[in-house]
Design a protein around this nucleic acid. Structure first.
Lengths: 140, 140
DNA sequence: GTATATTATTTACCTAGGTAAATATAAGTT
DNA sequence: AACTTATATTTACCTAGGTAAATAATATAC
């Protein structure tokens, strides 16, 4: 059994990642959402109102990306931006519309998550997690 | 030890993937390339001249994405598009410039690949590969 | 209290991925 | 040969990620 090359490993990761987001977008399209939009909605539902900085730090994406995605969510009536005490910051809250639709979308996503890992046993899922933790940690 | 949730698993995959491409782009920027561009150059070097269909089928991306990336590579003098016998198709070849610079970039990428998996033993790399194979296979 | 530095957000401009529809050529049918 | 179908590529238009620089408000220094 030959060892897999680093390149093949990263290539496969790439393939799988793209398949995942493609499929996720497909399933979310019924709800008028995209994958990245859902991850923001989910975060706010989980942690309560967040500033944009809270969001990009948690999701590990850049501030301009959040600005843009929030604008789309705002246009779709999923979130509202309210001014914070610190007038530089904007606090993001879910709209009633978002709260009403949250659980339906969540069910869709739960099914999606399960479908994606269905061939992995619980032990394998834990193991995969631990291996991914060791991947690309930035240190040498 | 609690089991990891599907959501956390996919979330981590997301984080790692973004870190990977970000870092890869950073290292390639010295060479005036982006990650996706390199993957095309690498494919052609490996398999020889390919039609655009060959490329998108191999890389598992959509045809329009390839069209765009090739245009950028062409502008950067990395590739040339020549008409195939079948006049519908365009055969992509590396330029002399690409051939001359290939090995330097490849060294950069080999180092990158190794850096990304450096915390994983050979067995772990194989295992990670096998687990990723089982992920998101599309079947239920 | 004014000047400077820091922080939060935005704007402008890249690349990359996707879908849907258009175009051009080839292949198949009658 | 003419008509229809299929294939290869492109165009137009989305979203998402990134960097660099601008703007506005806060915090800090003097």
């Amino acid at each position: 059994m030959n060892n897999i090359t680093n390149r093949d490993l990263l290539h496969l990761l790439n393939q799988r990642f793209r398949y995942l987001t493609k499929e996720m977008n497909k399933r979310l399209s019924d709800h008028g959402l995209y994958a990245s939009q859902w991850s923001i909605i989910f975060s706010i539902q989980r942690f309560g109102p967040m500033t944009q900085t809270d969001i990009w730090k948690y999701l590990n994406i850049e501030a301009p990306t959040v600005t843009r995605t929030l604008s789309r969510l705002e246009k779709g009536s999923w979130i509202v931006r309210r001014q914070g005490e610190d007038k530089r910051e904007r606090v993001i809250e879910l709209t009633d519309y978002a709260k009403q639709n949250f659980s339906v979308v969540q069910e869709t996503m739960d099914t999606f998550d399960e479908d994606m890992v269905t061939h992995l046993s619980p032990e394998e899922r834990n193991h995969l997690y631990r291996l991914l933790e060791k991947l690309a940690t930035g240190e040498k």
